[in-house]
Design a protein around this nucleic acid. Structure first.
Length: 657
DNA sequence: TTTAGGG
DNA sequence: CCCTAAA
């Protein structure tokens, strides 16, 4: 029962959050975890209040939801969220996310309906849980449940995620986020809750989605040959076994997996250690998880992926999988693992991983720009753990990026330890970019939570911003620049909310496919200053997108109105100050004037320098704008500019749009 | 605080 | 990019 309570809280908290989010419509609501509502159907009022639902309402909701599901399917999120929810109540958080993000503007009605629905499910689950708990469920059932959960969720999720990523970046990101959070939640959840929920979930779930295959997990184990089981055993326990009893092996492995999962949930580390033994410590929790998973499933694909790209992973599916696996463990936990030893050992072993700059960068990068279709590129996963004091942190917000997945974080209540370990796998697309070292520091404090909550969009944008932030902070100059863009909520990175999304999406950063090779640090250079301090100079190459935006901004606002342009077109880029815009423009002018003569050369100029080539079109446009500006006196430029811009605009557009 | 310019 | 003067 105790556990139950805990669960409730969590869920409730989430719920509440969701309610709040909706009402406020703010993606980035800080954490408002607060009073738990009890498991009961509740209605969410427009203002976000929760009101006890009547039976009638419930019924209605049910119908409503079903309908919605069908609709949502396409969207994908719903399905997932629902699943999650059904499986675990914790998933409510997911729902919330979806609602706010995916359905962004969905009617309150829908949202409410969803919530209600969720609540319903929760209630059921809860009841079941209680029953189950009282009765005590066989181990074996645990397994089943686990497997179910993972199996059910993931496959679907993966597919969805991927497809979405490709097609709808923003949504995809949100989905990922959602998924991750969901999975995480599950993982972290207390075993009992999970178990129960699992069973209940299956029931509910079945209604929602027909396809539940039972006990995947079990099947998996069953399918394995003794030899495989041995292998698994070895991996799991770090020692060989000669036992030939398949049943025993399965059981044993199942249990261990559970443990590891738990551990993972609580602390990735443990798991890592186990696995790590082999790998030494991989930087990626994912990997570990992956390895486990792969072993478990013995799926070739997965294995291949993991191994191949240890650092780099393809997003979605793998991640999901991993998560699922992890989750499994958690689910099954109820068992006390045979060994406390393990735990202890694990604990001892647990260490905190520091996020890599790269990791951070990736996060940031993914977020905004990268909705690109290229899912695969590479993704890295890294885990770091921090202890988060109170809350379970939602998934690390940062991690979520379209392609990236977060595994992570969340504290477990199980042991009473609340260590959260975020593991993230991220796909890195393009630029390596700057240092985010400092980021980590931020994370724990404010970011993580806020970030989590932030909508995908936010995340995306933020990530950039976030990456930037650290630098700024370090520099100490950050204040001004940094704040500009965004609004600000508690967390620093909220800039993105408004404008960013659309714009960001547009950008795909065609340019820099550069690699990670020198990545992170290169950007920053310390320069001695007269003042006595060393100043960090950091260089952020302009992407084509940015340039285009700049040009567009100039055409729209006129050259010289940098702050305006900054606001309009670069709100999502925390770096890029108005001064930067100005400087860039100056450079563009120079380039354009130089370029003039031979079209043949086109935009090669910059290339020489190694910078991204600027398409001639853009330069031409720049020139036009420049001309216009010169022709039109600044004095009444505003009106004129507009006109001029328009004309130019047309031309330009034809050119590169 | 924002622009414009120089470095 | 950074820094600073000027507005």
């Amino acid at each position: 029962m105790e556990t139950v309570v805990g669960i409730e809280d969590t869920e409730d908290g989430k719920f509440e959050d969701s309610g709040v989010d909706r009402s406020s419509s703010a993606l980035s609501s800080p954490k408002q975890i607060s009073n738990p509502i009890v498991y009961k159907l509740v209605r969410v009022e427009g203002d976000g209040r929760l009101v006890p639902a009547t039976d009638d309402e419930v019924m209605e909701v049910g119908d409503f939801l079903e309908c919605e599901n069908s609709e949502m399917h396409v969207v994908a999120d719903t399905g997932q969220s629902l699943e999650c929810i059904s499986i675990e109540r914790s998933s409510s958080g997911n729902l919330q996310l979806e609602c706010s993000e995916g359905t962004a503007e969905a009617d309150m009605g829908k949202l409410n309906a969803k919530l209600q629905y969720i609540e319903q499910i929760l209630q059921k689950v809860k009841e079941e849980e209680k029953q189950r708990i009282s009765c005590g469920s066989p181990v074996h059932s645990h397994l089943n449940v686990d497997s179910q959960c993972s199996a059910d969720k993931f496959p679907a999720m993966d597919g969805k995620v991927q497809s979405e990523n490709q097609e709808i970046p923003s949504i995809a990101s949100s989905l990922n986020y959602t998924h991750s959070s969901g999975s995480i939640d599950q993982c972290s959840r207390p075993s009992e809750g999970v178990i129960e929920s699992g069973s209940s979930a299956s029931a509910v779930y079945s209604n929602l989605k027909p396809d539940l295959s039972m006990s995947d997990g079990e099947i998996c184990l069953d399918k394995l040959s003794i030899r495989e089981l041995h292998e698994l055993f070895k991996v799991t326990f770090g020692r060989e076994t000669t036992v030939k009893d398949k049943q025993w092996l399965k059981r044993r492995i199942a249990m261990s997996l559970t443990n590891s999962c738990d551990v993972s949930a609580t602390t990735f580390i443990i798991k890592d250690n186990k696995i790590v033994r082999k790998f030494e410590e991989d930087s990626s929790g994912n990997l570990n998880a992956a390895s486990l998973i792969s072993l478990e499933n013995m799926t070739e694909e997965e294995d291949g992926n993991f191994k191949d790209s240890s650092p780099v992973k393809d997003c979605g599916s793998d991640d999901n999988r991993v998560v699922s696996e992890t989750r499994l463990g958690n689910c099954s936990i109820g068992y006390e693992l045979e060994d406390e030893n393990h735990q202890t050992e694990q604990r001892a072993a647990k260490r905190i991983r520091k996020p890599t700059k790269r990791y951070i960068e990736e996060l940031s990068e993914n977020e905004s720009r990268e909705h690109n279709p290229r899912l695969l590129i590479s993704n890295k996963s890294t885990g770091h753990g921090h202890v988060s004091p109170t809350s379970y942190v939602r998934p690390a917000a940062r991690n979520v990026f379209s392609e990236v997945r977060i595994y992570v974080t969340r504290s477990d209540y199980l042991g009473g330890s609340d260590v959260q370990i975020p593991c993230v796998s991220r796909v890195r697309r393009s630029r390596p970019r700057k240092d985010n070292t400092s980021l980590m520091k931020f994370h724990p404090t404010g970011m993580s939570e806020t970030a989590t909550k932030l909508s995908n969009k936010l995340l995306e944008h933020c990530s950039d911003a976030g990456s930037e932030i650290p630098d700024n902070v370090l520099k100490s100059r950050m204040p001004a620049k940094f704040h500009q863009p965004a609004s600000s909520e508690p967390a620093k990175e909220k800039q993105c909310p408004t404008t960013g999304t659309a714009e960001l999406r547009q950008e795909l950063r065609p340019k820099r496919a550069d690699s990670c090779s020198h990545t992170s640090d290169d950007d920053i250079v310390t320069v001695p200053t007269a003042k006595g301090g060393m100043r960090r100079k950091h260089h952020r190459a302009w992407t084509l997108i940015e340039v285009m935006k700049l040009v567009e901004g100039v055409s729209r606002c006129g050259a010289g109105r940098w702050s305006e342009i900054k606001r309009l077109s670069f709100s999502s880029y925390s770096y890029r100050t108005s001064v930067d815009l100005k400087d860039k423009w100056r450079n563009l002018l120079k380039a354009s004037s130089a370029l003039t003569p031979s079209p043949a050369d086109d935009g090669m100029n910059s290339r020489k320098h190694g910078t991204a080539p600027i398409p001639e079109k853009i330069l031409l446009r720049v020139r036009e704008l420049a001309e216009m500006n010169s022709q039109v006196p600044p004095s009444y430029s505003s009106s004129n500019l507009a006109a001029g811009a328009g004309s130019v605009h047309g031309r330009d557009r034809s050119g590169y749009l």
